[in-house]
Design a protein around this nucleic acid. Structure first.
Lengths: 151, 151
DNA sequence: GGCTCAGTTGAGAACTCTTCTCAACGGTGT
DNA sequence: ACACCGTTGAGAAGAGTTCTCAACTGAGCC
């Protein structure tokens, strides 16, 4: 449960790699870093259209961020692909199936053991894993209960 | 590390639900059940085109199987969406990032504990999770080593 | 300040993937 | 044999994503 990298850190990452950190890239980054829930590419493009950020740029930039490990892909409750700005280091998302709010947790302790076991049993050379946990966040549980009362 | 349901079991599932198990559905099921690696929808449609199975039918049927819990979605090494026929019960895929061979394992013991902990810490009502492990299978490791020798 | 150059951007075209439509088919019960 | 109802295939339609290209931007250099 850590915060995403602040913008100046990202800027340093770009600088270090010699990649320009343009106005559009900053806006897209700030959109993700400021959100507490996962967003689709379409939502991102919609949100930034007014700021003069083109759709193609959103696609290109999200892919760039993803390649650089600055965004992580998750699936929401409907199986739609969304993106979230991950924190420094390695963590896994706990996604609300209703509002897509995301909380990150560190669950790697258990998984390194599992990976070692799997590698030994199967002969696979393990290089990574992907874990997402789905639930309903407290606020959506509340809303749902209120909805039940009314019906 | 279990086998997918044999075809006659699937047929029983369909019968029980009153859904026809047509020739096309059988062919699509046999394609997945007979494969030891994850396949994309496009690959499935290509493989069955000669057998007179239309593209729309492949899409409809894969979605149907998925809804019935007979297929599971996984991402391959390139992040492409593939499907595999899962075994009876709950398991997770170990996917080869090169050839997409899939081995299934049961890793839920650890995760129920993690889920309970997460639920208590965050107030989320947890309803599921998704775990995939990625590696290189022994045969692809071998191929890769041979390739290295030559270059 | 003005120039050059390489990389980025926006708009729209192009392409790909997925879903929809509809007439024909198939199998089940009568 | 017949009617009924869900499924199917072909192609159209729609949605999502990538490509193309001219214009723009900013960094380095004069």
């Amino acid at each position: 449960m850590t915060d995403p990298k602040p913008t100046h850190d990202i800027e340093a990452v770009f600088h270090q790699k010699g990649i320009p950190f343009t106005r559009q890239r900053r806006q897209i980054w700030e959109f993700f870093a400021g959100a507490d829930r996962a967003a689709t590419i379409a939502e991102t493009a919609d949100a930034l259209r007014g700021d003069g950020v083109g759709q193609a740029t959103v696609y290109r930039t999200v892919q760039l961020f993803n390649d650089l490990g600055l965004l992580a892909r998750v699936q929401d409750g409907q199986g739609e692909l969304c993106y979230i700005a991950p924190p420094i280091g390695h963590s896994h998302p706990l996604v609300c199936g209703v509002c897509r709010r995301v909380i990150r947790f560190d669950g790697d302790g258990d998984l390194t053991e599992l990976e070692a076991l799997l590698g030994a049993e199967t002969g696979f050379s393990i290089y990574g894993h992907h874990l997402e946990v789905y639930g309903i966040c407290p606020s959506c549980q509340q809303t749902r209960r209120e909805g039940d009362d009314g019906e």
